[in-house]
Design a binder for these strands. Structure first.
Lengths: 362, 362
DNA sequence: TTCGTACTGGCAAGCGCTTTCCACGGGTAT
DNA sequence: ATACCCGTGGAAAGCGCTTGCCAGTACGAA
């Protein structure tokens, strides 16, 4: 990793390193044209690439944005990552990626690593949790973040704030109206039908999941419907599939009686919804004929799924972008940073009209 | 970004910075137990976090792995990124992410940025290209990479090597047997039917796309079938959709004649295949009844798509992992790094038996 | 002509860490 | 008792860059 240095360039151009620095790496003072040209030419001929580490050390800033996600291959996080990446580009920074599997301890480690690299800001994506087994981890994470902020760092958290974080300065959270939107979804779903609602949610304590469940229940209540049963499972496709199997069994069993209402399954995210749908299908049940299914997030890759999934659209990319921006201090309590909004999208998977079984084009 | 420094820790512990460094940040020489404890305690109480930039500067290595992808939200790249991330974790490094939209100039910039940060290794994902308009960009990219390698860097390229790269040392490419697998897919598809094959490919010059097309044609030829028509379009869902519309029109038009064979559409990647399928569906055509569709990559998120998509499985994550490993010098021309293999998966979307129209569960 | 002003480029002091080299003390071999 | 070696902690020289400060120059104003 030995590349040519500023000093070499300076020597070749016959100037001092200070001058070379000024012409090559942006400074308020730009040396005279002839000298500048000579330096630039020297740099060019040596293939000079400034050492960002050294620059960072000298300027104490790194041009880095730290991003933690649960899993970069999860389309939800991938979309957010794209937004963050975009914001980073705007700011002429690079993004440093860490995956944490959602474990607060890993997140804490990631934050420490970002701090060690003197990342200018940190974006934390992924559901916060309040489970007792995460208590300690959360506390440590909060402490780490506080310390980072106290040292002048900026953090943007997506969704819920970190439990226990107390930093006054540099701590921003991008609020996602999960509850309101889930309520709207419930209202929309409840409007034109009467059926039994079941919620497939993540483990208790996952804020995102809990919020969406709470919102959905509220929506049902405001439509005069009873609260839905909640099935807790893993916050991923497998969890959805599992819950789907259980529900499918129930549906199949009740079919003979036949005066039971159709089931409407609300999975708290699209991926779980797809899992549930796959489970139903694997047991020969059809959607929406035998059960309605709705998700949340409006994952892009899943839009071609059939029957098209009713869901709540979330501007994931924008969320990532905004988190990165607000953490950077841009457009925070200034102009530009409008609150995140989403909207309910009712598609085929929750249609009421019984489809003629031959016609299932959405 | 002012955190406490090693010197402060040393002072508090009443030792020299050298000693503090030795105890805190791994060194061959570990000071005496009592001293070590004192230092560690001082560090703890000060909340000391080593400055990775300074460490990097002193050791001239950064603990960073650079990764360029076209688009992190594309599930293909996201899967690879996950593999790279995993390998990074193994090596106790972090990954620095850059998205390039596939433009060689952006890739060149990214490589330069990685070099500036003294990344220990660089992984380049995303199809290489030989289009004339990319000529210059490719040359520059190659030059940048060469320089990086010459300075002791390691690069792992996924798929095809960079055109024009000449670095002898530190330059590894993870070969993906696109051609062979595409040929196998063609053979598999050709085996049990006679139909018209059409290939929906990316723009000319995209190596991945071209390889898959070539392989597929070869497979057809070896099955005694004529070469398939090739439709060139964008290497993404939109491109697939567009091509799908065109093909749908053709199918619909020929239906009356009805002695035309069924069309079998091979899209060179899953996302394009899904696009094409969506297009057909939007025009009331059914798969596989009115046309067969096959893709390539076996994207995880798309596995729940119905009718299930015939495709070629590629161990994306493993590919990413291996690229990162080989670039790190691990397991390269040593044990462990077995060549990448994939396999054909024939699913419902290319089934021959006409489905009874009521039964479309895969 | 003589100041004062406004620039210019260079010097040198760091940024926070690692690592070579050195001095020193205690142990063993002679 | 002397010589020698090994193991320890510390001093100091960087790693490659930025930047405050200073001296020198050229200029317009007086």
């Amino acid at each position: 990793m030995a590349a040519s240095t500023l000093t070499e360039v300076a020597r070749l151009a016959g100037v001092s390193p200070a001058t070379a620095s000024r012409v090559l790496n942006g400074s308020a003072r730009i040396p005279g044209k002839d000298i500048a040209d000579r330096v630039r030419q020297a740099a060019e001929s040596l293939g000079y690439i400034p050492n960002a580490q050294a620059q960072g050390l000298a300027k104490s800033s790194s041009g880095l944005i730290g991003l933690t996600v649960h899993d970069i291959a999860d389309p939800y996080f991938a979309a957010i990552a794209r937004g963050v990446q975009e914001a980073a580009r705007e700011q002429h920074k690079m993004v440093l990626l860490a995956t944490t599997e959602g474990a607060p301890e890993s997140e804490k480690e990631a934050v420490a690593a970002f701090a060690a690299r003197r990342a200018d800001s940190i974006v934390i994506a992924g559901s916060r949790t309040s489970r007792t087994e995460d208590r300690e981890g959360n506390t440590e994470l909060a402490a780490e973040l506080d310390r980072y902020c106290r040292n002048g760092g900026h953090v943007g958290v997506i969704g819920h704030g970190i439990v226990g974080a107390t930093a006054a300065e540099g701590y921003h959270v991008v609020n996602v109206p999960n509850q309101e939107l889930a309520a709207q979804l419930a209202t929309g779903l409840a409007a034109s039908r009467e059926e039994d609602f079941v919620i497939v949610g993540g483990r208790e304590g996952l804020f995102t999941s809990d919020d969406r469940i709470r919102g959905f229940q509220r929506g049902l209540a405001s439509a005069g419907l009873p609260a839905a049963e909640v099935i807790r499972t893993d916050f991923n496709r497998a969890g959805g599939f599992e819950a789907g199997l259980a529900l499918a069994a129930r549906i199949t069993a009740s079919q003979p009686g036949s005066e039971t209402k159709r089931l409407c399954i609300f999975a708290v995210n699209d991926v779980m919804a797809i899992g549930a749908a796959a489970a139903l299908r694997s047991l020969e049940l059809r959607i929406p004929r035998d059960a309605a299914v709705a998700g949340f997030d409006d994952i892009e890759t899943l839009r071609d799924f059939r029957p098209a999934l009713s869901t709540v659209h979330l501007p994931l990319e924008e969320i990532g972008r905004q988190a990165a921006r607000s953490a950077a201090g841009l457009s925070y309590d200034g102009a530009g940073s409008s609150p995140i909004t989403g909207h309910v999208i009712l598609r085929r998977s929750t249609e009421v009209a019984q489809p003629s079984s031959a016609e299932s084009v959405a």
